[in-house]
C-alpha cells in the first residue's frame, strides 16, 4: 500500500516529487482535489494537493517543499518505502469546462497543483496563458510540463535569475492589459501571491479561482480546524473547498490563522533535528 515508485528531487534539498502507488485514489481523483497523508505513527496528518495522476499505472504524484518536521520526514523516504497512511481524494474538484482564454498562475509549489488543473483545462479546449513564478531559478518547478500545456508561458523570478524579473502579478498586469478576452484566472501559490492576484483581477473584473491551504487535521469536515472566511461566511476548506472564488476570500484572516502553531511547528522541527543529530 502507498508504495513510492519514483522519487525526484526537483529543487536541491527542498522540493521533491513522489509518484505513489495508490490505484484506488488514482482512479478517482480529479484536478483540484487533495490527499491527506501521515508518514509515521504519532505523525501529523498533512494535506497535499495532487499534481498529477496516472490511472493506468495506478499512481498519483505529490510534490512538496520541505518546510517542517513532517515534510522533512517525507523527504527521508525512498523508492520502495510506503507512506503509512494516505487518504483521499478529498475536497471538491475544480470546475472544468471550456471558458475560452484562461490565465493559470502558479507560485512556488503551488505550480504543482496548478499543473493538474491546467491539464484538465487544456483537455476541455481552453486557450491557456501560463505564468509561473518562483523566488529564483533553482526552486522553479515544472517549467517543462507547463510549457507543453500552455499556449504561452511567462516565467518570473524575484531575483531575475530566470525569465522575467519580478512577481507573477507584474506578468499578469501585462497579460491583462494586452488581452481583453480573459474569462478566468486560476491562481495557486503563497497566500500573499493569491491575495495580490485577486486584488488585481478584481480591478479588471475577471473571475479568479484560488486554492487555499489552511491548517487541517482530518480533511472530512469533522473538526472544523480548516475554517476560512469566504464572502463573510464561515466555510470548511476541506469539504467546501479547497477552491474558492478569490474575490470573496478573506486572505488576512487566513494568514493570521495559519500562524496559529508557528511556535509549536518550530519546536517540533527543532526537536526532530536534535534527535537526528544525536543518532
Amino acid at each position: 500500500m502507498n508504495e513510492i515508485v519514483r522519487k525526484e528531487e526537483m529543487a536541491k534539498g527542498s522540493i521533491y516529487r513522489f509518484d505513489v502507488n495508490a490505484p484506488e485514489i488514482a482512479r478517482k481523483i480529479l484536478p483540484g482535489q487533495f490527499v491527506i497523508l501521515r508518514v509515521v505513527d504519532g505523525g501529523e496528518r498533512i494535506p497535499l494537493t495532487v499534481a498529477d495522476k496516472d490511472p493506468s499505472r495506478g499512481t498519483i504524484s505529490i510534490i512538496f517543499q520541505v518546510v517542517g518536521k513532517t515534510t522533512a520526514l517525507l523527504r527521508s523516504l525512498e523508492v520502495g518505502d510506503n507512506i503509512k497512511d494516505l487518504a483521499g481524494p478529498l475536497g471538491k474538484e475544480s470546475e472544468i469546462k471550456k471558458f475560452g482564454t484562461v490565465v493559470v498562475i502558479g507560485g512556488g509549489t503551488g505550480t504543482a497543483i496548478l499543473h493538474h488543473i491546467t491539464k484538465a483545462l487544456k483537455g476541455a479546449g481552453n486557450e491557456l496563458i501560463g505564468i509561473v513564478g518562483a523566488r529564483s531559478k533553482d526552486i522553479l518547478i515544472m517549467e517543462k510540463e507547463m510549457r507543453a500545456l500552455c499556449d504561452r508561458l511567462i516565467i518570473t523570478t524575484d531575483d531575475g535569475s530566470h525569465g522575467m524579473r519580478g512577481f507573477v502579478t507584474d506578468a499578469l498586469k501585462q497579460v491583462l492589459d494586452e488581452r481583453k478576452d480573459i474569462a478566468l484566472v486560476h491562481a495557486i501559490g503563497p497566500i500573499v501571491m493569491m491575495k495580490n492576484v485577486c486584488r488585481m483581477t478584481k480591478e479588471y473584473g475577471i473571475r479568479t479561482m484560488v486554492s487555499l491551504n489552511p491548517i487541517m487535521i482530518d480533511g472530512t469536515g469533522m473538526c472544523g480546524g480548516c475554517r476560512v472566511k469566504v464572502d463573510g461566511k464561515m466555510k470548511f476548506c476541506c469539504c467546501d473547498g479547497p477552491e474558492f472564488d478569490g474575490h470573496q476570500v478573506d486572505f488576512e484572516n487566513l494568514e493570521l490563522r495559519n500562524s496559529m502553531y508557528m511556535k509549536e511547528e518550530r519546536e517540533s522541527l527543532l526537536q526532530s533535528i536534535t534527535l537526528e543529530r544525536r543518532k
Binding site: 504519532g42 501529523e44 496528518r45 518536521k69 487535521i217 482530518d218 473538526c223 502553531y261
Partner: peptide
Amino acid sequence: TRINLMRAYRFPDTDTPLP
C-alpha cells in the same frame, strides 16, 4: 481529535500540536 486521535498531549514527541 488532536488529543485522542493525534495524541497531541504527548507533543512534541508526537507531531500534532495543541492550542
